[in-house]
């Protein structure tokens, strides 16, 4: 993994975009769910597409929508996005061998598109000796385009269906997060206790009457801190 000779070309962007297409199979249903829930929460198509376009981070959008109220929960939504997307912070650092060679809009613009999938593919490309940082942007742009399409279709479908409160489709959001947990699980020794603590703290905060996003915040940070403490003690 050499940091010398890093380039940023149209060819790299296109190659990244092509290699991102198979991932769309996974992100498309997620986008549909975000669109349907947005419609159910009373967001207009424009508001929904605006959120998807500038936030472009599915799980934080879905979580914010779950806390959505009228008027919009500005503080809670912002805090939820901050907590959920904190995981992106070390990804940029891990891609430093590429990013350090970029300047201006290429650097800060590419960073604006960073998502889990573009990080994962680019980290693999970097390990293979890839030197074209355009790849990172290409993956993200392809995902962004299909994300907008999926969310738009979901919103249109949701607006037609007009889900009544308590409709089973609302469970799609919770189901999505349950499913995401499966590939995140890295074994009981690492994850069991931290995840149990996260659930316990979140439930405790919820039962004691704390509103969103506090149960999420407290549970997530408590679980992650326990996980880190256990890992460092083992090391």
């Amino acid at each position: 993994m050499s940091a010398t000779g890093v380039i940023f070309t149209r060819h790299g962007v296109l190659r990244g975009a092509r290699q991102a297409i198979p991932l769309v199979i996974g992100t498309f249903p997620f986008g549909l769910v975000v669109g349907v829930i947005s419609a159910a929460k009373g967001l207009s198509l424009l508001e929904t597409l605006l959120m998807s376009g500038v936030v472009f981070a599915g799980s934080s959008q879905l979580l914010a929508l779950e806390l959505w109220t009228d008027p919009a929960p500005i503080f809670a939504a912002t805090l939820a996005a901050l907590v959920v997307n904190m995981r992106l912070a070390p990804m940029g650092a891990a891609l430093a061998p590429w990013l350090d060679r970029l300047r201006g809009i290429r650097l800060w613009g590419t960073l604006a598109t960073l998502v889990d999938h573009s990080y994962a593919l680019s980290a693999a490309e970097m390990r293979r000796g890839g030197r074209d940082a355009g790849y990172l942007l290409g993956v993200a742009l392809a995902l962004w385009l299909f994300w907008m399409i999926a969310v738009g279709i979901g919103h249109l479908a949701g607006a037609v269906v007009r889900l009544p409160p308590g409709h089973p489709l609302y469970f799609a959001a919770t189901a999505t997060f349950c499913a995401i947990l499966v590939p995140v699980w890295q074994g009981g020794r690492r994850d069991l206790l931290p995840w149990m603590l996260a659930a316990a703290v979140a439930l405790g905060a919820w039962w004691s009457g704390l509103g969103a996003p506090w149960p999420l915040l407290a549970g997530a940070l408590a679980g992650a801190a326990l996980g880190a403490w256990m890992e460092l003690r083992r090391a």
């Binding site: 907590v83 997060f177 947990l181 995840w195 703290v201 979140a202 999420l216 549970g219 992650a224 996980g227």
Partner: peptide, 8 residues
């Protein structure tokens, strides 16, 4: 992991 657990 804890984020999604704490939400779910």
């Amino acid at each position: 992991g804890p984020i999604f657990v704490a939400y779910v």
